[in-house]
Simulated scan of single mutants.
Amino acid sequence: MIHFDLPSDVALLLRDTAERFVAENYALPQRAEMLAAAPEEAPRLWSAMAELGWLAAPLQEAVGGLGLTPVHIVPLLEALGAGLVLEPVVPAMRCAATLARALPENEAATALEPVLSGERIEVLAEGAEGAPITATRDGDRVMLLGTAPLVPGGAAAAAFWAVAELGGAPILIRVAAEAASVAAFRLLDGQAAARVCFDGASCAVSEAVPDCAGAALDFGTDMGLVGALAECSGLIDALYRATLDYVKLREQFGRPIGRFQAVQHRMADMFIAREEARSMLHLAAEALESEDAGFRARLVSAARVKIADNARRALRDAVQLHGGMGVTDELAVGHMVKRLLVLTQLGGSRGAHLKRFRDTA
């Protein structure tokens, strides 16, 4: 059963901390300096984020986390999304959440300690749809073959947890960045990513996380989706607020354009899109706590489809009401639009999520 409760004090504290952090560190000139750096450079604010406990927030205390629920961390991720943060918080959270479930508690705590402390970045790396990374046994070694074409956060990663197929079952294999071929680049929105080729990388059979990793990977994937949807929700809200301020100031025919009925209708549409996105996000975050994997998958996919649709409508209206300035880098709106365009393409296609929704109904 889903309960739409008011945000807890913990959730509000995380959100307020994130908003202050963004206000101090992510003005457009500061963000421009970060974007000018090479994508493979370590994110300059990563250690500070780790010290604030954000990376450890969704993990159980037994593995070094803070034991907070997905509902608790959603406001934090909304604030980071609205602030156009460049650090790979969601990819790192997804990886950590997967390892926390795939490994025994003592092994997970050991593996995650340097990650949660901000000492290094580790993320999951998967093959493209229809072209998975494959693993084969060669004596006491497991050999990898394949490429992960898009690894968010992978540009500055110290290691990758490759999701490979061995005998038709998924396994996780940790590969140090220097043992793979890593090509770093920036996405349309400025986020650093990488193309990672694992051909020839290997590990001892005893180091591979076995096929019991499947359930952990499914949960981690849904956790990552909810994190991306939280960023979308925060961006939709930020776009709405920025556009509302703009139509109050921009004048045409001697009065603010916000007084024209057609513009008011557009703003009403954006408001509805924002509220629907928030509701669906909360629904998906609550569903992450369910032990029913089918129920969780169904609601997360439903939220993915609805929020992505609303994000596209919101960015369309924001650009139309701002005019040409809405797609420039001079205004935060232009950066928000690019970020939303990228987020709505990650995590699987609309058709794939509609299919998953039907299959788990």
Rank of each mutant, 00 (worst) to 15 (best):
T243A: 03
A318I: 00
I257L: 04
Y246R: 09
R266Q: 11
F253A: 10
R298P: 02
C212N: 15
S206D: 14
A215G: 11
E286A: 13
L288M: 10
R255G: 06
R250N: 08
Y240C: 07
V226S: 01
V226E: 01
T221H: 14
G224Y: 00
L288D: 01
D245L: 08
V305P: 01
D309R: 15
A216T: 00
A192S: 13
A238Y: 03
D189Y: 04
A215Y: 05
G224K: 00
M270C: 02
G323H: 04
G214W: 03
F260E: 09
L244Q: 04
Q320N: 12
D309G: 12
R313T: 08
D199V: 06
A215W: 04
A215D: 13
A308K: 10
G254D: 05
A204N: 14
L288W: 05
R296A: 10
G220P: 13
L321A: 05
C212S: 15
L187T: 02
A287M: 12
R278A: 12
M270N: 01
D218L: 13
E286I: 10
E276Y: 05
Q264S: 12
E231W: 11
L217P: 13
E291S: 14
C197I: 00
C212P: 09
H282T: 09
D189Q: 06
F271K: 14
Q320T: 12
L217D: 05
F260Q: 07
A208L: 02
R274M: 13
E286R: 12
L281I: 06
R259C: 09
S301P: 03
A287I: 11
R259G: 06
S279Q: 11
R316A: 13
F295P: 06
V196A: 07
A297C: 12
G254Y: 04
D269V: 12
H282R: 14
L321K: 02
T243L: 03
P256Y: 00
C203P: 01
R186G: 02
S233D: 15
R266C: 09
H282W: 10
F198C: 05
D189V: 07
D222P: 09
I257A: 03
V209Q: 00
Q252F: 13
A192N: 04
V305L: 13
C203A: 15
E289K: 13
A242C: 09
D237G: 09
D189H: 05
F198K: 00
Q191G: 08
N310Q: 15
A215H: 11
M267F: 07
A204V: 06
R186W: 03
E286V: 09
L283C: 10
A208H: 00
R241V: 09
V196R: 02
A293I: 07
D237K: 08
F271N: 13
Q264K: 15
D292K: 11
V305T: 01
C212D: 13
M223A: 10
E291T: 00
V300F: 09
V205Q: 08
L225E: 04
V263N: 03
Q261M: 14
